[in-house]
Each structure stands twice: as C-alpha cells, then as structure tokens.
Design a protein around this nucleic acid. Structure first.
Length: 892
RNA sequence: GCGCGGUUAGCUCAGUGGUAGAGCACCUCCCUGACACGGAGGGGGUCAUAGGUUCGAACCCUAUAUCGCGCACCA
C-alpha cells in the first residue's frame, strides 16, 4: 500500500492503466479460447471524425458490455475500426486542397487525388481512435479495420459481383435524388425532408386552339417550366374534361404541350391542374412514363439552368432563375397570384442544400433476404431495445424501394464493372444505353479486371459508403473465402450498440447482408442509444457550438467521471439533455470512492477477512455485506434488462448512502487507537471484503479508478488486473443477517431522528448533548456508543425508569422514545433572547447575514450603526457581547 | 395525414396499482482526523387537462392540449 493524495487526480492514473492493459494484451480476443464467446463490432466512426458526446455514450456502453462480459468469464472480442465515409471525407479533403493549394480534384486527376486522400487519412485519420483509447475503450486494437482495407474492399467487390450475378443489381436510367453541391446521386435515406416557407405561384397557360382561353396552374417551381411537357388534370374532374386531349401554349420556350388526364392529380389542390415536368419531379416522371411524355432536362448537374432556348435564364442558379421566371411570367400577363405556402423540401444530408430530382444512369440494388430480415426482428431472434424500434424497422422493411448504390465520387469502392472501350463512349456521352443494350461481351463484372485491360474502361462511379458498412459484422472477421476462426467463434455478434438514426442506413441493411452473405443474423441484440441534446433541447452540433468537447471534459473530470456521469443520465426512453454538472457529479463520485479507500489506508495495515466468524460480527458489518450481495443481484437484473442508468444509480447509492454514510460512520470507533485489536481487525476485514467486491462491480463503469484502487489496496496481485478477474458467483454473506440488518436499520433511523431533534433546537453542531432512551431493546446496550457517534452526542443513556421534565424535546424512534434533556445545559431559547435584548439595549441592531460566522466580523460598521450578526451558538453570543462592550467603551 | 415517444420539485430525470423519489440548485448549521469534489438538517410537487376502471391511479383505459421524433406526402 502506498500514500494517496487528498483528492483523486484521474489524468495520470487513467493513462497509466490504459498503457498497462495494452501491454498486458488484456483486450485481445483469442478465437481458440475454450471460453464462451462474446462479441461486439463497433459502429465504425467516420475516419474524418472527432469524438463527440454521442460517440462517448455509444462507446462507453459498448465498453461496459465488453468489460462485464469478461467478468462473467467470456472470451470477448470488441472489434474496432473506422469508416471511409465517402462524401464526408472527399468533401473535407477537397476543401483543404482548395484552401491550401487552390486546386480542385479534377485538376489533380483521379489517381493523384486518391493518393492525397490516403495521405490525409494516414495523417489525420486516427484522431478518433486515440480519443476512444483515452475514454478507456477495451477494443481489440490488433484487429482494427478500415472499410477500405484491401481485404475489406475485396468483400465489397465480391458482394457486388454476387448480387449482380443473381440479378439483384442492375443499371438503369431513373429518377434519383441528386445533390447539386456534391454532384452525386444519393439514396432516399440521405434526403432529409425539411419544412420550408415557400411560395405557391398560380399562372395560366393559353389554350392553343382557343386564343384568349386559359387554364390555371399552380406550382412551387416555376423555374422548371421550360421542362414542362404536359399539363395534367384528374379524369374525374368535370371542370377540365372538355380540355383533355387539347393543347396549351408553354410560355417559354414556346411550345404546344398536351393536356392529359391522370389519376395522380388531386382535385382539391390548387386549381386542380398540374404542370408536368418529367425530368425534374418524381411524380411527374411516373406520369411521363405512363403517357410517353418527352423528358426535357433543363438543369445542369450543379443546379444551374440549362436551356439555350431561353438565354436570359440559361446558366442561372436555380433559385435565381426562379425569380427571373416569375418576373417573365408577370411581364407576359400569365402570373395570377403568389401565395405564402408551407411545404417540405428534401435536403441533402451532407451538403444541406435542396436536392434535385434528376434522371440519371445509376446502379440499383434490389434488397436481398428482405423477408428473413423482417422476420428475424418480428419473431425476436434479434431483439431491439427499446422494443418500439422494431415497429419502425418493420414499417421500413415493408416499403423498400431499390437502393441507389452508385455515387459520382472518387473516394470509395469503385464499381467492379468494365465496359468495352468502343461501347463505353456511347454509354457515357449519351447516357442512353441501358444494361440491356450491352451484350455479354461488352461488359465485364468481376472482382478482377478483364484479361485484356487495354480494351476496357472501368465504370467511374464508386459505391455508397453504406454498401460497404452493411458487411461490417463479418467482413471484419474474415477474408473472402477464408475459413476464419474468429468468424466461427464470434459470429453472430452478441450486442450491437448504435443510434436509432441509422436504423435504416445500417442496422436493417446489416441484417439483410448477414442472411445473404454470412449465413445468418449478424447480432442477437440491438441496443439503441438516445440522442444527446443540450439543455435547450437542441441537437448537439458543431455549427451551434453547443457540443462540448469530450476530450476537454476528460481532462477536467477524468474519463471515468465522464463515463459515469453520462451513464447516470442516459435514460432507457427518450432523448437526454446533457449538462456538464452530470459529469461533475461523476468526478465527485470517483473522488468519494477514492477517499473511502484513502480512509481505509490511513487506518493502516492489519485485518484480513475472516478474523471473526460472520456470526460474531457487529450488525453494521453484516448489514453492509448483505447490502453488497443485494447490489450484486440487483446489477445482474439490471444488466439483463440493459438498464444502464439504473446500474449507475445502484452503484452510486450503495457506495454513498450505504457504505460511506452509514457503515463507515458506524465503524469509526473500531478504527480508533482505543479500539481492541480484534474489533479493528474485523472492521478492516469487512471493509476489504466489501470494497474489493464493490470495486469489481464498479469496474465496467469506471475501469481506471477501480483498477488503481484495487492495486493500491492490494486486492489484486501484482501482475494481475482487476478487469480480468472473474466475478465470483457466490454471495459474501454466509449467515442469516436478518436480525443484524433490522438492528442496523433501527439504529440508522434513530440516529437520523435524533440529529433532526438537535437541528430543530438549533444545536446541530453541538457535541456535548446527552440523550436518554426509554424502553430501549436489550441489544442496544452494546451499540449505544456507536449511536452516540452517529448522532454526535456525548452520551446515550438507556433508562427505562426515566421521567422527563415537562417540555423536554423528544422523538419517537424505532429504538423507543428518545429524550434530549436540557437540564444542566443552558436554556438556549431563553438565553438567546436575553442576549439579543442586551445587545439591543446598548443600541445595536441584530441582523442575519450571509456567509460564514467564523470569518466575518460581527461588527460591520462603527457605532452608532453597529450591526451584529445572529448566530445560533450561545458561546459566540457571549463572546460578541463582551467584545461589543469593549468597543463601545473605547468609542465613548 | 399516419405512427412513435414525452409532459412528475426551480433544472435534469427515476418511479408500470398501495402513504410522491434522486442529483443539482435553494435555506440553516458545520472546514468534526477519508472526502468542502465533503458532512448534518430543512423547504419545495393538486405527477399536463378532463373523464373512466378500481377499495385504491403518477402508473391501466378514453379523449384533449402541448412538445419532440419518424414515415408519407398535393404541384
């Protein structure tokens, strides 16, 4: 044992133990182990990412699960890694190149640009990994993966090829969500519908065969009218039946377009007539297909208008063009009204701009194993917590659309498809060729390039990042075709911990991939974390500046403090509002734990468990031992239910309210020098038995401090680690403690009542009071000294014959009636009154003041306006009065 | 529009049929030999509203209000 400083200083301790665990290879998983396997794969953070509180919550939970599993004797694999995060990373590096070198990616060319991204990744990519280590994460770092590792990329290509061969992947020209900033297609999930305050424009088109007669149309997007190829009305709409089949004049560029009838049109909305722009609206696209309409593309990929026939609009940004188009309509006398209008607009998840529905050639996946994946959750093979997310999942699975998996980016897994050079030009330039236009000899789909690469060109697109992430649970454990021991031991994984915001992006897709490629479900339990918000309820975000840096918090409060604080407020249900004070509480709790152990160390050596038979131990000992067993059982139950906040709360209450506030206070007498060696040894023995087990129970939540204290207190042998000790199944208590617990409870409660009595009579801090207990139980005689210590009394007298004088303060306690006789002491109330009057008599004012009496002067100003602070302690009143007298004498 | 979740002390949240809880904040006292990142005591809530079921409801049921989140959208 060694000396401990007064307050716990986590920083050095945490770094020391993390290094020791790494040296000891404590986190490494052995697939050959005979122990039962337990595994988690980390939700790979973006390689560009830096740690935020969401990561902390998420990874602390995984660490707790992993550490707990080790304590239960399992062979644990927590597999870490990072995600290449296509758009995010490419954007970041492009921005840096533009800022620092003034070049774009096309200036560099694909090969050079990718080289630069890799360089950037090697240099800055590991930040979040270091931060996870700082947090104490017990990942098997020897198995760290990256979604663009060679072996992992092999999986991605292989999966693409397999799905293609099964006919589930195909290429086609379809309406997709296009991001005009990132210049790529996006999946439906990457589009965020956002309420907007926009305008609804009502305009009129003139009928071609009846000049002066108009049809009125409402639109929110007048800038695309150059792409109109029809006007549609509902076939059931009597107002418009006479128009169907006729033509109207499109204002610009001038053209005559048909009026068609389509069920899709809502009679109630606007004028009931809808302009059809098949190339720039999803619904219009469908209508266009049904009616064989011309698809007129009037937008460049970057969102500028492409319409040489309208020179004043051509080349303008879409939002500038909107105003211009409206102005032109107005000039032409075709604009009828403009109304304020609330609607939802799809925004790009990454670039935060409105997406543009756009027809383009892309690769699509028809999801595999949908039914199996849906059933697995519905029938409980995969259990979601909280359970309600299962409904969200089921709903999504029922309404699956094909997944657009191609991205017009460079950073990512390039699509493993090659085209014959001569056909490729046509494909690319016209964007007209469908897969069906290519014969088998024109296209090569394979993990490896064609044998005569000179004659082929590779598809330039890469795959959606999630198309690699969905393979994560197994592609991290085995190479393609490998008979992997890790996979055998650790797949399917045990628990997945992630946010509900990626239930579609990731969780659902992993389940489908698991069935399709790994022969079964990828995990058994999914624990969905809560979203962390600030005190105003806003999502944490960099731009709002409301997201505290977890590393700063760890420097200030320690990783253990941060972990514990966050766990205590992480609810099972809804979102959590984060406040730094919760981390402060975590730090304070660590300090409390530390000081309890420090107290033990100051009591010195001696004492080992079992000096006394448990049957002979005082009630406080048996009580705390029983409560520790209850704690262990309670934690077991809470872990089974994944109730992490409850676990933290139980741990907190045991140490603070039971162990420190009650047990430690009750046994202090036995650690004084006056105590018998036997009592002292028994006390130290109980302390060690309970504390060593408690530290172990605490270890998953606060791994560093528990490891430190266990080592310092000698609870763990040199060269061993607390985190590797298996939690004993047997309870500590071996005898019936019900009597002892009843006695201890009675004493603690009585002590509370008696302290309350003291406080009521303004004698809370006096230690010289004597209490009398009437009709006390016989066993109390042995404990009266302890009770006196707990109460802060000079003596507790047990006297069944006691007759209290009238007016003696009294309280009913589980130990019988308690009296606090004041004979022999001063009559506090009366004496205080007398002194107050005396002070007022000599012309001073008695005033209540804030602050500490001991430090502040009782005379704030010189006479005649001398002010005296009120105090509860009579001896101080006397002293003040005396000093006042002296002062007054000096002044007069 | 459909679905989900919340509404409990000033704040953040526990509490799924039996006399309302924690931490922080607040008030009083105390730097007593583990801890002021602490100790002792205290004040504070008609559990969103209205009905209903029940001997008994914060909890179960039905509405309503309100906040948040998904999904789907009519230009």
């Amino acid at each position: 044992m060694s000396e401990l400083p007064k307050a716990y200083e986590p920083q050095a301790v945490e770094a020391k133990w993390y290094a020791a665990w790494m040296d000891g290879k404590c986190f490494e998983a052995d697939p050959a182990s005979a122990k039962e396997g337990y595994s988690i794969v980390i939700p790979p953070p973006n390689v560009t990412g830096i740690l935020h509180l969401g990561h902390v919550l998420n990874n602390a939970l995984q660490d707790i699960l992993a550490r707990r599993a080790r304590q239960l004797g399992k062979e644990v694999l927590w597999l870490p890694g990072t995600d290449h995060a296509g758009i995010a990373t490419q954007t970041k590096v492009e921005r840096q190149l533009r800022d620092e070198e003034g070049v774009g990616r096309r200036d560099l060319g694909r090969e050079e640009f990718l080289k630069r991204v890799w360089e950037w990744k090697e240099k800055h990519g590991g930040i979040i990994i270091q931060q996870l280590k700082r947090l104490g994460c017990s990942c098997d770092w020897s198995r760290e993966r990256f979604t663009m590792d060679a072996a992992y990329s092999q999986w991605v290509s292989q999966v693409f090829v397999d799905l293609f061969k099964q006919g589930l992947i195909h290429r086609g020209k379809r309406m997709v969500n296009w991001c005009p900033v990132s210049l790529t297609a996006l999946s439906d999930e990457e589009v965020i519908m956002t309420p907007q305050r926009s305008k609804l424009y009502t305009m009129r088109y003139e009928l071609a065969d009846a000049p002066g007669e108009f049809i009125e149309i409402s639109t929110t997007r007048p800038e695309t009218l150059m792409g109109d190829s029809a006007v549609a009305v509902n076939p059931k709409d009597p107002r418009y039946t006479k128009y169907v089949g006729r033509k109207v004049k499109r204002p610009f560029p001038p053209a005559e377009i048909p009026i068609i009838a389509d069920e899709h049109v809502d009679l109630e909305f606007g004028t009931g007539a809808l302009k059809i722009t098949p190339a720039h609206d999803k619904a219009d696209f469908e209508i266009g297909l049904r009616h064989g309409l011309e698809m007129i593309d009037v937008l460049h990929p970057d969102g500028r208008i492409h319409c040489p026939a309208c020179p004043d609009l051509d080349g303008l940004d879409r939002f500038v063009a909107r105003k211009m188009a409206v102005a032109r309509l107005d000039e032409m006398g075709l604009l009828l009204k403009v109304e304020e209008y609330d609607n939802n607009v799809g925004f790009s998840e990454r670039a935060h701009v409105p997406i543009e529905p756009r027809i383009s050639m892309q690769w699509f996946l028809k999801y595999p194993c949908v039914q199996q994946a849906a059933d697995a959750v519905a029938n409980g093979d995969i259990k979601f917590r909280p359970e309600r997310w299962a409904k969200t999942y089921a709903h999504w699975m029922e309404n699956l659309q094909d997944w657009c998996i191609s991205r017009q980016l460079w950073w990512g897994h390039q699509i493993p498809v090659w085209y014959r050079k001569d056909k490729f030009a046509a494909l690319r330039d016209a964007e007209a060729l469908d897969m069906h236009d290519l014969t088998a000899g024109d296209i090569h789909v394979g993990v490896d390039p064609p044998a005569d690469p000179a004659n082929w060109l590779r598809d330039e697109d890469v795959m959606d990042t999630w198309f690699s992430s969905w393979l994560w649970p197994f592609a991290t454990m085995a190479q393609v075709g490998e008979d992997s021991p890790a996979l055998k031991k650790f797949y399917p994984t045990s628990d997945l911990v992630t946010g509900p915001d990626i239930i579609f992006f990731w969780v659902a897709r992993m389940i489908m991939a698991g069935f399709q490629f790994a022969g079964g479900l990828p995990f058994k339990n999914v624990y969905f974390t809560t979203i962390i918000r600030d005190l105003q309820g806003r999502k944490m975000s960099k731009s709002l500046g409301n997201s505290p840096d977890p590393v700063d918090l760890m420097e200030k409060y320690g990783a253990d403090g941060l972990r514990f604080g966050l766990m205590r407020i992480a609810p099972v249900g809804s979102d959590v509002r984060f406040d730094e004070t919760s981390v402060e509480e975590g730090r304070n709790f660590a300090n409390k734990l530390y000081n309890a152990c420090r107290f033990r160390q100051m009591a010195g050596e001696g004492g080992s468990a079992g000096v006394l038979e448990q049957g002979q131990l005082p009630p406080y000992h048996l009580d705390i031992i029983a409560k520790l067993d209850a704690l262990a059982a309670g934690l077991e139950e809470s872990y089974t239910e994944y109730r992490f906040g409850e676990i933290a709360q139980r741990l907190y209450e045991f140490l603070w309210s039971e162990f420190c506030d009650k047990f430690l206070e009750a046994v202090k007498l036995d650690l004084r020098e006056s105590a018998t060696p036997e009592a002292r040894a028994a006390t130290l023995g109980t302390f060690d038995a309970v504390m060593s087990r408690y530290l172990q129970l605490m270890s998953p939540y606060m791994p560093h401090i528990t490891e430190e204290l266990s080592a310092r207190m000698g609870y763990v042998r040199d060269g061993e680690f607390l985190m590797q000790q298996v939690l004993p199944a047997a309870p500590l208590l071996t005898v019936d403690a019900s009597n002892a617990q009843a006695h201890a409870a009675a004493i603690y409660e009585a002590a509370g009542r008696m302290r309350n009595l003291k406080a009521e009579y303004k004698m809370g801090s006096r230690k010289d009071l004597r209490f009398v207990i009437k009709s006390a139980p016989a066993w109390l005689a042995a404990e009266s000294k302890v009770l006196a210590l707990l109460v802060g009394a000079a003596e507790i007298r047990l006297d069944s014959a006691y007759e209290a004088v009238k007016g003696t303060p009294a309280a009913v306690t589980p130990l019988g009636e308690v009296y606090m006789p004041l004979e022999g002491l001063i009559d506090v109330a009366a004496e205080r009154l007398r002194l107050t009057k005396e002070i007022e008599r000599i012309g001073l004012e008695v005033k209540k003041c804030e602050g500490k009496l001991g430090n502040a002067s009782f005379v704030e100003r010189a006479p005649p306006e001398v002010v005296v602070q009120e105090t509860a302690r009579l001896d101080e009143w006397h002293a003040k009065l005396q000093q006042l007298g002296e002062m007054l004498a000096a002044l007069t």
